[in-house]
């Protein structure tokens, strides 16, 4: 498998603020790679360097084998972009806007086909200025894919979409991946990342704090939650004596985050409950989610 993006020790500063602090990662051909992080974590700066808008202070980035900052137009011909903020010339219709950009690329997708892909066929003759926010975002996506890019950057593409539109969009993105397009995606929605991304990196304060497929990240970093109503007359200390681990009270429930020790803790708890005939109300074992991984990795789990 070849790499479409190779990032080595990339650093970018704005004055005294370190936006990106020595990050390295690779994106393989034909995969969807997700960049997750809070606002200000450095996602957009990273994307802007990869897209050739900014020059790194240190380190290197190779995108489709070229330095994006000095790359030629032929390189741009193979790149598609959906920028975070978008606004269009309001006086042109959707078709006019998309056709204009189709003219910039050497092998553009047909305009009708593109509009159908993003679900804008009904709005083709509408002026862009009169579209709703979600519809404008679809125009953005249309402009991103019009040139049949081998590599597509999506910066928070589904912000402002309703749930149905988002599900439609996921189908479109998966379709593009199946055609062989490599995709780099930033998002705030964990279910989006979990559903779409083959691999992902979580950024915090300019650094990559976790990287891998979502299932490995979850199994490596995610903790299973065990919780139940604290039986009457039982304290947290007593519970510790029974199970051997610390519990905390959260929402009136005795709660513990467990890794590999889950099975032994459960066995001890159940044995104790059977023998003392205590009924554990609202007993739950919760599967770890990407959200837990994200909150843990970015230091927001407290």
């Amino acid at each position: 498998m070849t790499d479409v993006i190779e990032v080595n020790n990339l650093t970018r500063r704005f004055g005294r603020l370190v936006a990106i602090d020595d990050i390295s990662f690779t994106v393989h051909e034909g995969e969807i790679f997700g960049l997750l992080g809070e606002n200000g974590a450095g996602k957009t700066t990273t994307l802007e360097i990869l897209e050739g808008f900014q020059k790194p202070d240190r380190g290197s980035a190779l995108v489709l084998g070229h330095n994006p900052y000095t790359a030629h137009r032929q390189w741009r011909d193979r790149i598609g972009l959906v920028l975070q903020e978008s606004d269009f010339d309001p006086v042109h219709t959707v078709t006019e806007t998309v056709s204009l950009f189709a003219g910039f690329f050497s092998h553009p997708r047909a305009v009708d086909e593109t509009l159908a892909l993003v679900g804008l066929t009904a709005k083709a003759k509408e002026r862009v200025g009169r579209l709703s926010g979600g519809q404008k975002r679809r125009v953005d996506v249309a402009l991103g894919i019009i040139g049949r890019p081998s590599l597509l950057f999506l910066d928070e593409p589904t912000t402002g979409f309703d749930p149905i539109a988002r599900a439609d969009f996921w189908t479109v993105i998966e379709g593009l991946r199946d055609e062989g397009t490599s995709i780099v995606l930033t998002t705030h929605y964990m279910e989006e990342a979990e559903r779409l991304c083959d691999r992902l990196a979580i950024m915090a304060k300019g650094q990559i704090v976790a990287e891998g497929t979502s299932s490995t990240l979850i199994s490596e970093m995610g903790a299973t939650t065990l919780r139940f109503e604290l039986p009457r007359g039982l304290g947290l200390d007593a519970l510790r004596a029974i199970t051997g681990i610390d519990f905390v009270l959260r929402d009136n429930l005795a709660t513990a985050l467990l890794g590999a020790e889950l099975q032994s803790v459960l066995r001890r708890l159940m044995t104790w409950a059977e023998s003392t005939e205590v009924h554990l109300h609202r007993l739950e074992v919760l599967r770890p989610s990407l959200t837990d991984v994200f909150l843990g990795a970015t230091g927001n789990d407290r």
Binding site: R76, L83, E85, D87, S106, G147
Partner: peptide, 17 residues
């Protein structure tokens, strides 16, 4: 206006000379 609305950036990102 075009720059602040992001149109210029979008043009720059395309293979338009």
């Amino acid at each position: 206006g075009a720059r602040e609305a992001g149109w210029l950036k979008r043009f720059r990102a395309s293979p338009m000379p």
